[in-house]
Design a protein around this nucleic acid. Structure first.
Lengths: 234, 234, 234, 234
DNA sequence: AATGAATGAGAATTCATTCAT
DNA sequence: TATGAATGAATTCTCATTCAT
């Protein structure tokens, strides 16, 4: 169901040497600093206005740098979005590994993941936003460049589901990947409508716990028999 | 968390009398025909390339009309997207009412809705695509103009959930609206990943039945007690 | 978690910081220089081809800048014309004040004004052209934006006439403002036909002195009695 | 001080046979009727909005015909303006000949001309408007196509002045053509400022008589000696 | 490294003109 | 003849990207 180009540079003339385009998260003194400032500004502005409705100059302004500076760190506006995504999802995966790795119960793991993506954990809200933002912006970006990372994220969720199935806690008749997608989508949908309405933190928290209930109710092994007894489609 | 205007036409001068602005779905010979052709072309192209990566001229070409013709039927590119959304979601709601109205069992209703949005019902795939497409393109559009219709769609789903709760078939400790959003999001997520991969109808069908299983397992009344016995969040 | 503006662009977002918007006539190295170059090019091209028959790109070319550069200094093509008018008429008024202020005799003052508008004074021809050009291009511009300045110019002429009347040098039975308009119109008409034919400087000079003779003959106090003795209209 | 293209047709494909493009003023039953209606509508709309700010469709609407119909009578929008001018100025000249021919006194003749161009004579206001309108719209039109007719009009005025000079009523040291241009310009300027302000017929009438006084005072033979005794320019 | 003025390709939109009915 | 829906060339304006300082 989706789409676009995300290729063509407007004029041409690829830049050559950029100061700190190491892709390394570790911020060096000046460089990484600025790169990070730009990324942070980009998340904020893209989240508010959308990628296509954001001018590079707006990101620059929000980052407190000159327009041209952005091109010292990123090849193009598209690359900026892509870098943003890769950089953040990597951190998200790392965070996930750490957070979830410490938990043994699959159910608790899923709760944690849900809270994480809804930005309810610590100061990691920004991390969470990026995934959602990117997915909503450019399918072409997603399709052509970011898909692997995105898939890795979904895989991480799926792995938890698979674990639950192995341990007998979760029903086995549903594909872990489907569950992962459904969870991701549900989270995305909740975030969307939450953003469309009047954002209210309490509501989001409540949604998180209800979604957990819903999802866990759905995959808990006990549901299995009943479900399969019904005709699945018409 | 969001953004834009979706208002001003370039100059002004609203086209007052448009050839076929009857709003009638039945395409008359010349008139409704052309408007409809443009809408159909737009769905297709927007779905493939995304709204922002689609040139008006591309829609025109796909519709087999001249660029200018588009502006005989729609005020602007933005309005085209908006009209598309309003026109289709209305039909979707009507279709939903008809399809779902004939069913009494809430569970079966939800299955039907899921199949509908995944475009698995008859030739109504296009109807379904539009909702997903628009939601992915412009939040501002959604927020400022299309939100009411979108909400109506979610409400229709929520109503089914509420019915199930009243009848005692579904657990009552989860907000029907949350369920609606979650279902919508899950469907959207599934459609997205389906589109990102190599679209294969069988897979989508399987996903539909699994998602039904997941969701129904999650909201069936039997899940209730178990869930609430667990700590809802960390 | 959201996005775009959809507000674009085409219309809003006033260029806030323009490179050289000092309004200062003295061209600094880069800045005022370019704005001034564009204005000068605009006068020239508009004068030759007319506002509506001039493409922005033609002005750009004449100014030796890129098309987009024009929009760094002026909001739109219309604004360029308006700015041109305001900028120049202001200078014209200033020049008028200086030139005419030094003269005491009202008759001599009028002569000077006539010469000024015909572009016979020094290198001030360009100043003069603008007034004539704008008046001929857009009534709406004149009506909606430039009228005050234009009126100020006419007022300046009227003031001289009024002075002459007070001093008894000019007849008092004709409205100073009417005289001002007539003089302006006559000058404009002369310039027009001069431009329509084969421009020849000598001719313009002769015209100036003859027009002075005509006008002064018409408003000199001595004419008064004779005139009023005749039936003014049918 | 002048300009434009007035040439290029937008697409091409010159029409071939038009119903009533005889250039004949005598309106045939259907044809001339419609042609005349279009012309009248054009004067009105062009006068109000200016040629370049008027859409062909607006003229059509004002004339109560379809857009395409205009092209049955006129080759192009440009040609419409041109035809308008030629048609009307011819009538204006004829009217002038009749009106002025009946008068012997040059002074009275000039008064009459002034009143005519200000649209103060009978129902001939429209005739008068056209001259003023065209002169303000497209110099290129004037320069390339209408100049001869326009010159004929100015000549008619000049002739009256020359007659007065021959008869000794007007001073001989001013070129009749210059006087003609000055009168034309003054009238034009008065009409312009009248239109820019709040049109009020009384004011226009008063202006006419004052302008007559001014002009006649300026060219009456009695002014001569005094004038020439002064230095004409700096 | 950083800046931000300048660039110019690209895109939406308009509107004179055509032509099938 | 008349119509007006359709056409598509032309034009303004935007904004990602460059590069001289």
């Amino acid at each position: 169901m989706s789409e676009d180009s995300f290729s063509k540079a407007r004029t041409g003339k690829k830049p050559s040497i950029r100061p700190g385009d190491d892709g390394d998260a570790g911020a060096s003194k000046r460089t990484g600093d600025k790169r990070e400032r730009i990324l942070r500004a980009a998340v904020e502005v893209f989240a508010r206005q959308g990628f296509y409705n954001t001018r590079v100059s707006e990101v620059a302004k929000a980052a407190g740098v000159a327009d041209g500076t952005i091109y010292l760190y990123f090849e193009s506006k598209d690359q900026l979005l892509l870098s943003l995504f890769e950089d953040r999802i990597e951190k998200l995966l790392a965070f996930l590994a750490k957070e979830v790795g410490a938990i043994t119960d699959p159910e608790q793991k899923l709760r944690r993941i849900i809270e994480l993506q809804l930005g309810l954990l610590d100061g990691e809200r920004e991390l969470a936003e990026v995934v959602t933002i990117i997915v909503r912006q450019s399918n072409s970006l997603l399709r052509e460049h970011a898909a692997p990372k995105f898939v890795a994220y979904l895989d991480a969720i799926a792995k938890v589901v698979a674990q639950g199935q192995r341990e007998g806690a979760f029903r086995s008749d549903i594909s872990p990947h489907l569950v992962a997608r459904a969870i991701f989508g549900a989270l995305d949908g909740i975030a969307l409508t939450w953003a469309l309405g009047k954002p209210e933190v309490g509501a989001l928290k409540r949604s998180a716990s209800q979604l957990s209930a819903l999802v866990l109710g759905g995959i808990r092994a006990s549901s299995e028999t009943i479900i399969t007894a019904l005709p699945l489609s018409r």
